[in-house]
Nucleic acid binder design. Structure first.
Length: 154
RNA sequence: CGGCGCGGGCAGGCGGCCGCCGCCGGGAUCAACACCCGUCGGAGGAAAGUCCGAACACGACAGGACACGGUGGUGGGCAACACCCACCCGCUCGCCGGGUCGCGAGCGAGGGACAGUGCCACAGAAAGCAAACCGCCGAUGGCCCUCUUCGGGGGGCACAGGCAAGGGUGAAAGGGUGCGGUAAGAGCGCACCGCCCGGCUGGCGACAGCCGGGGCACGGUAAACCCCACCGCGUGCAAGGUCACGCAGUCCCCGCGCGAUCCGUCGCGGCGCCCGGUCCGGGCGAAAGGGGGCGGGUAGACCGCUGGAGCGCGUCGGCAACGGCGCGUCGAGAGAAAUGGCCGCCCAGCCGGGCCCCGGAGCGAUCCGGACCCGGUGGACAGAAUUCGGCUUACAGCCCGCGUCCGACC
RNA sequence: UGGGGAUUAGUGUAACGGUAGCACGACUGAUUCUGGUUCAGUUAGUCUAGGUUCAAAUCCUAGAUCCCCAG
């Protein structure tokens, strides 16, 4: 539970991923997104000391090899940039069809989008709560998830 | 050497750093499948398309018949197949300008059209049963004219009748070519070719060869319905199983009769319900339940999940596909879904330049090819999803092996 | 992953195995001062490649593309 001790590690394992449809739905439902290059990045505060990533790459991007490559590049971008960027968000990256690009370009686009999303959420929190508790993402995330499934239809 | 064809193999390599998944071992922790450390392993020849065949699971012990679907030369291989191998037959091409044989390559869903039905547009007289539009003939019979030695002869008509050669239509018109024959013709006769029937020989067989007979009746289409033979139950790992969490019910249908009775039941007949598309058949039922519709809830974890018709080598059998035996060997198991990213060097290949050298052409200037050096560029198609066997489709290039590169006769 | 369906002119759709039609559109001309309407005419197609058949949009095989469904 203690944030990255001394050496920041550039890992990315299962706990750092979004693994269920309800988590994806919660992030989509929050409706906060930024577009940079071929990436459409959604974000939602998750109440955890780290960021988590989910990927959505449609068939239109290319065949299975091309889609796998894009996902690996975006994962590497997340892995290498996560310590330099604000934690505590669930991020979903949707990829639009595009010409193949390298890792450096993905890192630049991803971190730019991430910073813009952090800025957007801070602005929202200030407008709503004023000097209230800055973020209470635990209830926010869980409430959003359960609210999204049960109270979404009406 | 090169071109073409066939078969087999590879699918860039090495190093550093940052990462991902799994097995095993160790550590930390109250404990752990979570965390940390370490060893080892981690995409393909097509993993693809999902076109066939199986394994496996459930449904009812998956059994019989029908329906439906599939397959279709023969023999073999295989767990099985629509796959593979060998052979047969047919067609096309090459060796040659033509023919025959032979060799080579390619293609073929290649059983049955006297079991039945359908269809064959347009054109054409006629499209399947024989017929006759233009036409040919008119020997024989008829009519007319004429000659006559009174026996008959000659000419005409195309009425009866004979014919299917030629024309024409068509994809296809009831064997083909030639000779004889005839009034004209026709397998009417003959020769060769084709076809049909029978026999013998060879072959496991498809079939082939030879001999004899028959003048010949048999159109096409079954990737039209169909017939025959053989095969096939349905659904699919999101199959299916275990655990956890969670919810709300409601509506409809069925739930028999007789007899015996020691009142526990038993027998008989039917009935009802359920079970594959239907039937046979099977199971359940007697106040205990069974089935269906609508609605509601959960969609988390684990097992299935990778050692198998497995792979490699040797040897034996077989033309081969493949099989027997022996030895060795373990090569991914993810789950919003791993097997990657960056950097450096090197190697094929491609582009540009240089030029001492080598080979070829030319009288020659020079040109072409190769080797060498420098710079640039720099890998195709494509990503396991229950697992195998095939098929099909995509693919930069490289390596190895084999075959072939002017057949005989007229 | 599994299952089902479709593909005909620029678009939407017809067609027992026998000449590919129809509507809207586009283009040209006429009518009009111009445009529209109307009239006449033209254009252009069976997803691709093989096979069966005398003959294929249709039958068969393989491939391509698109859509839908289950979960």
């Amino acid at each position: 539970m203690d944030a990255a001790p001394h050496p920041p590690r550039f890992t990315f394992r299962r706990a750092d991923r979004l693994t269920h449809a309800r988590e994806f739905q919660a992030v989509y439902k929050a409706g906060v997104r930024k577009v940079r290059g071929p990436l459409i990045v959604f974000a939602l505060p998750n109440g955890l000391p780290r960021a988590r990533l989910g990927l959505s790459v449609g068939r239109r991007v290319g065949n299975a090899v091309a889609r796998n490559r894009v996902k690996r590049l975006v994962r590497d971008a997340f892995r290498l940039e996560r310590h330099a960027l604000p934690p505590g968000y669930d991020l979903v990256v949707s990829v639009r069809p595009h010409e193949p690009v390298g890792l450096a370009e993905h890192r630049a686009h991803f971190s730019a989008a991430w910073r813009a999303l952090d800025k957007e959420w801070r602005r929202r929190e200030q407008r709503r709560g004023g000097g209230d508790a800055p973020i209470d993402p635990t209830t926010d995330a869980s409430g959003g998830a359960s609210g999204g499934t049960s109270g979404g239809t009406p």
